[in-house]
Nucleic acid binder design. Structure first.
Ligand code: FES
Ligand code: FES
Lengths: 144, 144
DNA sequence: ATATAAAAAGACATGTATATCTTTTTATAA
DNA sequence: TTATAAAAAGATATACATGTCTTTTTATAT
């Protein structure tokens, strides 16, 4: 479904948020280790998220990544939009140039509800909520 | 969601089925033109579908692609499984190595129903049903 | 038999996502 | 002010999906 870049982005942000709660600002090496992702590639992903203002960073000693406004909910939708692009949410499942319910492809009737379900899920899920599940031991951040 | 290869595969099979109903066996050039896909790449896709026995082909004059048993429903699930591989249907949405509802990622609760909805849709939809929608002018095969 | 038409096969090319390596910039600590 | 630590940036590499070109095989029509 999502590309690896989006997966790393979401996992990285969850980890950063959890660390921020402890008053820490993790760097990309620590993040990559904890979310089991390639170090340098994760640095690039975080760089893009920083450019897109989804997260902030500080250079130099004691630097790292952090949320400027940790209380403001960050939805997965906003992250995926930045990483994959807006069209990701409206693509025709049959491969036509656009999805058009007035002139649908033969998959539209069955596919568009699935796509809307996905959209609803990522618009309602936030980094904060995912992080809480992990802190409450209701979910895991990585798997062996 | 699906890769272009799967999209071409599904559209191509729908077109072949429709033509078979008219007693014709289209070749890859005609198919590619009608489903708006790259000619040679479509040939490769059809070659793979033939190898996987989802469709049959005949070489030489008057040859082309056709269904051996047009009445046997062919689900999109079977096509996607051949093209994208079985794991496509069970991937963890958070990017963990496996999806495990006993030890879930924080997205599992919201993501797995979407994934199951997709699975159900492609297991219930068939090439025959899609083709019928097009023949009944309830859906289109291509878009400008 | 020969010419023709078509898929199959193999080789090659391009594009995009993913991944790594090196150098530069910037902030902090000593 | 110098050394150090960290992100940013740039260049390069690899893998895989996508796409094209050429040659071979095979069936049919003449
Ligand atoms: S037209 Fe294809 S999914 Fe809407
Ligand atoms: S464990 Fe991640 S989707 Fe099931």
């Amino acid at each position: 479904m999502l590309g690896k870049t989006s997966e790393y982005a979401i996992r990285a942000l969850v980890y950063v948020y959890i660390q921020n709660l402890e008053g820490k600002r993790p760097g990309f090496k620590e993040i990559a280790k904890k979310i089991d992702s390639p170090e340098q590639f994760t640095a690039k992903v975080l760089q893009n998220l920083t450019r897109a203002k989804l997260i902030s960073s500080m250079k130099g000693r004691g630097g790292g990544f952090f949320f400027d406004h940790p209380a403001t909910p960050l939805t997965l939708y906003e992250i995926i939009r930045v990483v994959e692009g807006e069209v990701f949410f409206s693509k025709c499942g049959f491969g036509l140039k656009r999805c058009d319910s007035e002139n649908p492809c033969p998959l539209h009737e069955d596919y568009s509800p699935v796509r809307e379900g996905f959209l609803k899920a990522v618009k309602n899920q936030t980094i904060q909520a995912l992080a809480n599940k992990i802190n409450e031991r209701k979910a895991v951040l990585t798997r062996l």
